[in-house]
C-alpha cells in the first residue's frame, strides 16, 4: 500500500486535473453557443445564394456550362480538403476523420489540410499535400477562406484534379459527430429549389459573365459552411470529452481519498498496538 504522503500527492494531482478539464469544458460550452449562432447567422446568405444559383443554372446549355460545372472524367484525380481542429482533447474526432480519409481516398489523390491536428496523419499517408492551413481556435471568419479557395481554384482550373471533395466532421447531436464527405467541385446545384420560375428580366452585364462569379461564391460558401460545421462539432466533442474527464477525475479522487483514510487508520491502529505492546512489556 502506498504511503499517505504519496496518496495526498496523487489526490492533489487529480484535483488539479479536474479543475483544468472543468474549465476547458466550460470554455467549450460557451464557444459552442457562439458556433451555433454563427452557423445560424450564415443561413440567410446560403439559402438566397442557393436559390439564385439553382434558378440561373437550370436549363443552361451544355456548351455554355461554366468550367466549375464540368463533369469529372472517369479516371480523374480528386483533391481532398480535410477540415480538422487545431487543438486536440476532443475525443476521437481527429482519429475518426483520419480513418474515414484512409477509407475514401486513393494513393494518387491530392490533399489539402485545414487544421494542425490532421497534418501529421495525412503526411504519414501520402506525399501529395498541396497546402496546409491552420484552423484557428476562435470562431472561423469568412476572411480566412479566401486563400484556401484560391488554392482549390488553381488546382481545379489547371486540370490537375477534376473533382474536389471536403471531408469534415458534422454535428449530429451533442454526443455524436460524424466524419462526412461533401462534394465541392464540380458544382451541382440542388434541384429542389429550382421549381420557381426564372424571373429576372434583366441581367447586367450578362448571364455568362455573372455565372462564374456566382459559382465561385457558391463554392466559397459551401466551404465556409463546412468549416463552421466542423467548428461546432469540435466544440461539442471537446465539451463532452472534458465532461467525461472531469467525472473520471472525481471518481479517482473518491477512490484515493478512501484509500488514504484506510491507510491512515491502519497506521494509527498499528501505532496504538505498538504503544499498548510496549506498555504490557514494561509493566
Amino acid at each position: 500500500m502506498a504511503s499517505t504522503q504519496q496518496l495526498t500527492r496523487r489526490i492533489k494531482t487529480a484535483q488539479n486535473i479536474s479543475k483544468t478539464t472543468k474549465a476547458m469544458q466550460m470554455i467549450a460550452a460557451s464557444k459552442l453557443k457562439k458556433a451555433q449562432d454563427a452557423a445560424l447567422a450564415s443561413r440567410p446568405y446560403v439559402e438566397k445564394l442557393f436559390v439564385i444559383t439553382g434558378q440561373l443554372t437550370k436549363g443552361i446549355e451544355k456548351a455554355l456550362l461554366p468550367v466549375y460545372m464540368k463533369k469529372p472524367k472517369q479516371k480523374g484525380k480528386t483533391l481532398f480538403v480535410v477540415i480538422a481542429p487545431d487543438k486536440g482533447l476532443c475525443g476521437g474526432l481527429v482519429t475518426n476523420l483520419a480513418r474515414e480519409l484512409l477509407r475514401q481516398s486513393k494513393a494518387d489523390d491530392f490533399f489539402l489540410t485545414i487544421g494542425k491536428k490532421i497534418e501529421s496523419p495525412v503526411a504519414r499517408m501520402t506525399k501529395n499535400i498541396v497546402a496546409s492551413f491552420p484552423f484557428g481556435t476562435t470562431s472561423p471568419t469568412y476572411n480566412t477562406i479566401y486563400p484556401i479557395t484560391k488554392i482549390i481554384d488553381e488546382q481545379f482550373l489547371s486540370g490537375k484534379v477534376d473533382k474536389v471533395v471536403l471531408l469534415s466532421t458534422h454535428f449530429i447531436n451533442m454526443f455524436s459527430q460524424k466524419p462526412t464527405i461533401t462534394n465541392l467541385l464540380p458544382i451541382t446545384p440542388s434541384e429542389e429549389d429550382t421549381n420557381e420560375k426564372f424571373q429576372f428580366q434583366l441581367f447586367e452585364p450578362d448571364l455568362e459573365s455573372i455565372l462564374p462569379d456566382l459559382l465561385k461564391r457558391y463554392m466559397r460558401m459551401i466551404l465556409f459552411q463546412e468549416i463552421l460545421e466542423s467548428y461546432l462539432a469540435e466544440q461539442s466533442a471537446r465539451m463532452i470529452s472534458m465532461q467525461n474527464a472531469t467525472n473520471n477525475a472525481k471518481e479517482i479522487i473518491e477512490e484515493l481519498k478512501l484509500e488514504y483514510n484506510k491507510t491512515r487508520q491502519a497506521k494509527i491502529t498499528s501505532e496504538i498496538l505498538d504503544i499498548t505492546g510496549g506498555m504490557t512489556a514494561t509493566s
Binding site: I52, L56, Q199, F200, Q201, L202, F203, E204, P205, S209, I210, D213
Partner: peptide, 19 residues
C-alpha cells in the same frame, strides 16, 4: 456601384440581377 457603373433603384424597378 455595379460592374457597368453606378445605378439607382427606385420602387417598381424592373426585375434585375447584377454584379
Amino acid at each position: 456601384n455595379t460592374a457597368d457603373g453606378e445605378i439607382g433603384i427606385l420602387p417598381h424597378h424592373i426585375n434585375l440581377f447584377t454584379k
